[in-house]
Amino acid sequence: MRRRDEFTLTVRRGRRAGRPHVVVHLLRRDDTAHAPPAPRPKANGRAAVPAARRTDDDLPRVGFIVGRNVGNAVVRNKVRRRLRHLVARHLDRLPPGSLLVVRANPAAASARHDELAKDLESALDRLLRRRA
């Protein structure tokens, strides 16, 4: 996820679970705040017919927020890489078309890998259990 409006929508209207090292925001496609994008018109002016196969709109999208309070650029990029690696394990658990924002707290800079993994998994469990 790279678009500012998707980050803003997810953080403001998504469900939130906070842990000591990370805060996770989840916005599902079926939430009223996030409607699926309208079909794009083809060159001939007619709307595209949705295909039965899985499209990019069905895939969950993930974004990361690692602010300056976490550390300098080297530390922030290290934390972002570690979080990206941890989230990749959980992508199959996310609902189709959902938006997920993982925000690192300053404590994430000095956290061990297993501590980050535990906090992320705990936050995701909490968010996915709420609506299940």
Rank of each mutant, 00 (worst) to 15 (best):
F64K: 09
A52S: 10
N77E: 01
A132E: 09
L116T: 06
A73S: 14
T32Q: 15
A38T: 10
A51N: 06
P95V: 01
R19D: 02
R4E: 12
P106V: 04
D30A: 13
L26S: 05
A35S: 13
F7I: 03
A35R: 14
A108S: 10
D57F: 10
E115Y: 03
L99C: 04
L120K: 08
A108Y: 02
T8P: 00
L128V: 02
R103I: 02
D5S: 15
A111V: 00
R89L: 06
L100Y: 10
R131E: 12
V101W: 04
H25F: 15
L91Q: 12
L100C: 05
D125F: 03
V11T: 12
G67I: 01
G14F: 08
R19E: 12
L9Y: 06
I65F: 03
R81L: 04
E121V: 11
P96S: 07
L27R: 13
R3D: 10
N44C: 11
A47D: 12
A73W: 09
A108P: 00
P60H: 06
S110W: 04
A73D: 12
L120N: 08
K118P: 00
A123D: 02
R80Y: 09
R2K: 15
R81M: 05
D125E: 09
R93D: 06
P50N: 11
L99E: 03
V62S: 07
A38H: 11
V75N: 04
V101H: 03
S98H: 10
G18V: 10
L100P: 03
R80V: 06
I65H: 01
D125I: 03
V74H: 12
R112I: 01
E121G: 15
D58I: 00
